[in-house]
Simulated scan of single mutants.
Amino acid sequence: MQIENLNTNEKYQKGVNILKNSPLRVTQQRLTLLAYLTDFSEEYITVTNVNRYMHTVYPTASSNTTYNNINEFVKLGILEERNDDGQLSVKYQCDFNQIHHGHFFCTRCHRVIKINGDKELNKVLGMDNFQFQTVNLEIFGLCDQCVQKNAK
């Protein structure tokens, strides 16, 4: 099941279940962070902005705690991360069942569209007999909606 077909509560619950099955303690701060990040499954948010949000909820919280929790969520596969010119950004995992996938980034509306995993990528890349271990595929351009707006 793809995450984009889930409502926000189901997305959140998937992350909570992963957290509960990990060695990490389930804390209120981690649950708040998870809840906030479920709104970012179709776009990236800078870690700096996530930290700002967490400081509005927990004014005395350490920035290191937020950064460490984000790092742990990435390791657990709850978040995807990317580094854009030195600026670290994260988004909620868009497909927990298909970790190997790529993304199309619309340079106009900033929408992020998932490119399905292994079998589809293998076919598109002409690498049918290959097995991927890590996929970091990013394509930039105009999405179908922005192209259609351009044509008008």
Rank of each mutant, 00 (worst) to 15 (best):
M1W: 07
Y92F: 15
L88V: 15
A61F: 05
N122L: 11
V74S: 03
H103S: 01
L121H: 03
Y92S: 01
K91C: 12
R82M: 15
V147E: 07
L76P: 10
L142I: 04
Q93Y: 00
I99G: 00
H100Y: 06
N68Q: 09
C109A: 10
H101D: 08
S89M: 15
G117S: 08
E138P: 00
M54L: 09
V112A: 05
E43D: 10
Y44I: 02
N83E: 12
Y58H: 06
L125N: 06
L24E: 12
E4D: 11
L121S: 03
A151P: 00
N64V: 01
I70K: 01
Q87V: 15
N5L: 15
R25C: 00
A61Y: 02
I3N: 12
T46L: 05
K20Y: 02
R82W: 11
D95L: 02
G15N: 04
Y12K: 12
F40W: 14
N150P: 00
L79M: 06
C109E: 08
Q87R: 13
N150I: 01
L33I: 03
V90F: 10
V47E: 14
Q28I: 12
G141T: 12
H110S: 07
G15Y: 01
H101N: 12
M1V: 13
A35L: 09
N150D: 07
C143E: 10
D95F: 01
I45K: 03
N49Q: 12
L31V: 08
H100L: 15
V135N: 04
T65R: 11
I99C: 00
D118K: 15
R111Q: 13
E81A: 13
E80Y: 10
T38G: 03
K75R: 15
E42W: 07
K152C: 00
D144Y: 06
G126A: 09
L121P: 02
F73D: 03
Q133Y: 04
S41T: 13
I99H: 07
F104N: 06
R108K: 15
H101R: 13
S41K: 05
T134L: 07
K91Y: 08
N5V: 09
L19D: 03
Q133C: 00
F73V: 04
Q133N: 12
R25M: 04
T46Q: 08
A151S: 03
F104V: 05
M54F: 03
M54R: 05
L33Y: 04
I3P: 00
N97T: 11
L31I: 09
G86R: 04
L142D: 02
N64M: 01
N5T: 14
R25K: 13
T107S: 12
N122H: 10
Q145G: 00
T60S: 14
P59W: 03
Y36R: 13
Q2Y: 12
C143S: 07
Q28K: 13
Y36K: 14
D144N: 11
E80S: 05
F105G: 00
V135M: 04
